[in-house]
Design a protein around this nucleic acid. Sequence first.
DNA 1: TAGATTGTTAATCGATTAACAATC
DNA 2: TAGATTGTTAATCGATTAACAATC
Lengths: 209, 209
Amino acid sequence: MGNKKIVSDAVIKRLPRYLRYLTELKRNDVLRVSSKELSEKMGLTASQIRQDLSCFGEFGQQGYGYNVEFLYDAINKILGTDKGFNIILIGAGNMGRAISNSDSIRRRGFRIIGIFDIKKELIGTKINDVEVLGFEELQPFIKNNKIDIAALTVPREKTKEVAEKVVSYGVTGLWNFSAMELKLPPNIIVENVHLSDSIMVLGYKINNK
Amino acid sequence: MGNKKIVSDAVIKRLPRYLRYLTELKRNDVLRVSSKELSEKMGLTASQIRQDLSCFGEFGQQGYGYNVEFLYDAINKILGTDKGFNIILIGAGNMGRAISNSDSIRRRGFRIIGIFDIKKELIGTKINDVEVLGFEELQPFIKNNKIDIAALTVPREKTKEVAEKVVSYGVTGLWNFSAMELKLPPNIIVENVHLSDSIMVLGYKINNK
DNA sequence: TAGATTGTTAATCGATTAACAATC
DNA sequence: TAGATTGTTAATCGATTAACAATC
């Protein structure tokens, strides 16, 4: 959609974290926050916060700082979480259910509107009020609904095939939970959650602290 | 433990990915690989691969490249996955079960040796051959076993309390699955898996491609 | 040997931090 | 107004890339 100036990945990855701290401030009825105050809470520099935000516009006011509510709304708009996203979940196993149950994901506007599995005994059951459908329903479902993201929580050996299938049906955003890299056309956006990578980094740090 | 020269986070985070590609090469019975070949597969520069590896030692040979098996073993040693890690899982819900079921985590030497939950109906049941214990067993279990990592897959509102508890019992590595930041002493290593952050980044990229 | 490829030093690029004029 | 704090430009720092002597 928007073809604005390109913002670096490092900045984008910090946005959800800003949102988390702003949510907390809002919850505590804090009305304004300066980059300095926020930087101390978050453990980064005030300069970086101002630099990061300036990639997207001017949200503050000299001598005052940032209005918490306003900045919160602004970052939500930047991330698109104000409008939200439609998701299909492919694979109704434990990981799929964990995602489906996640409040933090739902609260940010990510709507799971379809769940698919290959197992006969799961088809027709409901997970958080969404019926599990068989894979033969995938294509018509994607055709009849605007799907932004397919979350792939199928077994590793099925992931490549399923990914290529949903991409061929028109999905352009993939959230991949398998410990493998998907090679797909450049217009397809893939975000990986490699749990094993994450715990290996933790292991390294434990051994080398 | 080892107090060697500090290697940057960027490098550490690439190690599991190297391991993944080397596993694939090994599986295909490839004996040697040059930094150039590997760089083309992985989509980064040969220079970066050599630079990364040189943080830990000399693993290649001029004119030959790297012996796949040798480099694989070397990176496993660097990451500590050759010796492995003992994990306790706190929270036997869907996320906990997903972790417990994960082959990619198990295959890298992460052993789940204890599972804990607060729910009466879960206590005494088994998840992948590991019995679920009540929270009152936490302290003695940590005392009697060498625990490297506690995976926290409890509900958000319980996370802080549980984290502080296991830290007070002596665990120094935490794998946190809640969308919140844990403030703990600097000797405690925390690795976060913020699923909502991950999907927000995906959402941003979809809207801004 | 000649060709290939390493490990490393130097150059470049990009991201973070510092500084400060503008102004609320 | 005086003090505070922004947005932005310039300086610094760190990470990536290029180049190349060493050598298998």
